[in-house]
């Protein structure tokens, strides 16, 4: 989809995402190379490569390739860019990404069951416009089914929070 910036729908261009992702990869490359140097990158006589030998070259490839992408992106910085996504699309994505991130944080503190109930109920009620009965049945049913399946049947403990503790589960 090589739409140019001045296409019909307004949106974000590839300019900054491209640069940021390349910078991120470059940073990973720096970490990999520096840690490899710490553990030794040599080729020991009679023993072959040391612990950092392969990671060092892999990190270097990462540095070169992400650097290449970065230079390319910077060279094009003033030129028109292909569109990353329209604002409308990004807004939609955020409608998922924000609750998703909150959900993950909630799993850490409240446990998986309560968070899952809230997540499903939120989507069904706010976005799906489902009735109260359907919403409650699904949002309680899914965590409950997971509980029966994992904790009771397969004996796999899932993350729990204060509520489960209070109930003595």
């Amino acid at each position: 989809m090589e739409r140019s910036e001045d296409a019909a729908e307004a949106g974000m261009s590839n300019r900054w995402p491209e640069i940021l992702v390349a910078l991120f990869l470059f940073a990973i490359g720096v970490i990999v190379v520096s840690d490899s140097i710490r553990v030794g990158t040599g080729w020991e006589e009679g023993e072959g490569p040391r612990a950092g030998y392969f990671p060092f070259y892999i990190g270097s490839i990462l540095l070169i390739s992400s650097g290449w992408i970065l230079i390319g992106a910077l060279a094009r910085i003033r030129k028109p860019q292909p569109q990353f996504a329209t604002w409308e699309e990004l807004r939609s994505v955020m409608q998922m990404l924000v609750p998703l991130s909150i959900y993950i944080v909630a799993v850490v503190f409240l446990g998986l069951y309560v968070s899952s109930f809230v997540l499903i109920a939120y989507f069904m009620k706010v976005h799906g416009k489902f009735g109260v009965i359907g919403t409650v049945l699904t949002s309680v049913g899914v965590p409950l089914a997971a509980f029966m399946l994992f904790e009771r049947w397969f004996l796999v403990p899932l993350p729990k929070g204060p509520l489960e503790l209070m109930l003595g589960l």
Binding site: L100, L119, I120, F123, M124, G128, T138, P143
Partner: peptide, 12 residues
């Protein structure tokens, strides 16, 4: 709006 969050729960 139903299957989306359920998939997320299953992934988690």
């Amino acid at each position: 709006s139903v299957i989306g969050p359920v998939i997320i729960v299953i992934c988690a």
